[in-house]
Design a binder for these strands. Structure first.
Lengths: 189, 189, 189, 189
DNA sequence: AAATAACCGAGACGGTACGTCAAGTCTTGAG
DNA sequence: CTCAAGACTTGACGTACCGTCTCGGTTATTT
């Protein structure tokens, strides 16, 4: 009963969270800043989300999924280059922020950490599994485990390069990843 | 000139930091707790380290390196299984906390983030490059880029499994990583 | 708008400040002690007062004014003795602490020093000007500047005796002040 | 035995204290600043003085006494104007700092407060008693208690004006003090 | 149409930790 | 034994957010 929640408010809160997350990162993200940017009161946020970690999880959950590029040719390598390049861009732009929230919040709230992992897995799957099947196209027949292998390795190596190496996933790196790692593996059976 | 710094103090501070880091994580780690556990005053810590992030970086830098296992047989697969298994344990136990600090501190302090990356790279290199050369031993000749490839893929996949999949790196997984990913790649040229 | 300030809190803070001020003096007065005794959080105090000096100023401003004694007879000397005696007690009990705060805070904050002076002037005026007019009563006509002269001299000599001489303002001293200084001056024109 | 104390050090410390005292006041006066300005180490200061309050007391004790002006004419009023004017300048420049130390330190150390009072009394006496006797000169014979009265009232009113009124002791005020307060009293018997 | 119930903004509140400052003590090396 | 340098403990400072709690005022639904 009573007055229903203002959906516009909820949306504004999530979008403010996302933009602040990408601007300043998880730890520097303050609830007061989210309230201020979204034009809401702190109460309104806390009525919807238990705490900062839950808010960030919801914001990332809500985030619009970018659509993977359609295969451009019949050549598997061409399609892989295009797909991996897009994947690297997505991870650099969106996933890193969520990983920060995950690392920071996982100690204090195991359930929340699991929730974040679920979202990450969902997003990575959407970016690897089906797109890869399309990239393969007709004729070319790889091992049945190929999509799973791709989903296991490509995001891992990309995240590792961005976080630990601290270097961008530019053209040469994408080519290296495709030619020296992915193609040999996908074809090796 | 002047009174020299008490090395015992410095050591106690770093060890208190490490133990607290592994107990409560980066975010819940408070300077007051470090001071209390190390038997120092807060100012003594701040005289040595600019802030919490710098303290954590120094503590991790100082942390004793575990020594990788010696090759146990002439069989490359056997040696790889042993090495990867040890590597997964090290990452699960030590690297995850450092990654949290890295994520938390990298936005607010670029220099610190670079420092953290340097430490991570150093540690990962020590755990992959030379140990792998030893694991190869005589006879078996792989491509010259094999060590680099191993260093690039193994830690990436392990970290990814722990953090995103949220599953342990147990025996079956290590076998999968060695048989389905590493061995094919290292031998493929 | 928003939640209104809890007046009870504000009152408790001021009273805690006053009691601590008289117990330990300005310098030993700590904000943490005020917070603890008033049952508030430090932030609640800082929301109301910029710093320690401002808090003390407000506390003293709020302090209840003691009412001067009514004239007891038609004799000017009798009334002066009564008034000066009361004045000396007030200064000894209340003004000295305020003077300490004034000395301590006046260098670092000119505006605060002026504020303290305003309070001191207000209080001294209330204790000298009108009470003196009443003490004069009918018949006796003194120079028009008599109240101002009284306000200028009596507090000055009393404070000086307490602070520099370090001796109490007892009966003989009050008689001396009235007979040898005040009465001759007030009547001299 | 051992290395004797460097007398120059002690002097430099006291002078640094005095200059800082008049620049920033008692509370803002830091031992580190005294050490730095005097080119000494904190240890050297604390070897000589128990704490900040004792240092300030010693510094003021050591302070060179300005010599009061010689009587300029045979006219008592003229001489009084000259003497009071000089007295006001001395108090404004030197005494106020010590008063701050006295107010701040008197709670924590009663002995020290008494010491400070002793110095203040000594200085005020030197500035009032003998100079006044000279100012009277021949012929003019006042009551025997006149010097004591002068010493009691003049400094009190001057200090009060500077501290509570916060106004300077300029020419008109000096004239008022002499004509409306001091002369009538000194002559009234 | 009124009453009710939940919403929303604003912002006060009790906390916890931050990073800084100065006081006064202690230690080292040189004279 | 003195001195300069500076590390050390202690304790308070004033700030920033956290998550909770009133307020006054605003919608919708329910009577």
């Amino acid at each position: 009963m009573g007055r229903p929640r203002d959906t516009g408010r909820g949306l504004a809160i999530l979008e403010a969270t996302l933009s602040l997350l990408s601007e300043v990162g998880y730890e520097q993200l303050s609830m007061e800043a989210v309230a201020s940017r979204s034009g809401s009161a702190k109460t309104t946020i806390y009525r919807r989300y238990r705490d900062k970690a839950a808010l960030v999880a919801a914001a990332v959950e809500h985030r619009a999924q970018a659509t993977p590029p359609e295969p451009v040719s019949d050549d598997l390598r061409e399609n892989l280059l295009s797909l991996v390049s897009w994947l690297a861009r997505q991870i650099a732009e969106q996933e890193i922020g969520l990983l920060g929230a995950l690392f920071a919040g996982m100690r204090s709230d195991v359930r929340l950490a699991e929730e974040m992992r679920r979202i990450l897995r969902r997003d990575e799957a959407a970016m690897t599994d089906e797109p890869l099947r399309k990239a393969i196209r007709h004729g070319e027949h790889l091992a049945p485990g190929a999509p799973a292998l791709f989903a296991e390795i490509a995001p891992a190596v990309i995240v590792h390069r961005i976080m630990i190496a601290g270097e961008p996933c530019d053209g040469p790196f994408v080519a290296h990843l495709v030619d020296d790692i992915l193609l040999p593996l996908l074809r090796s059976r």
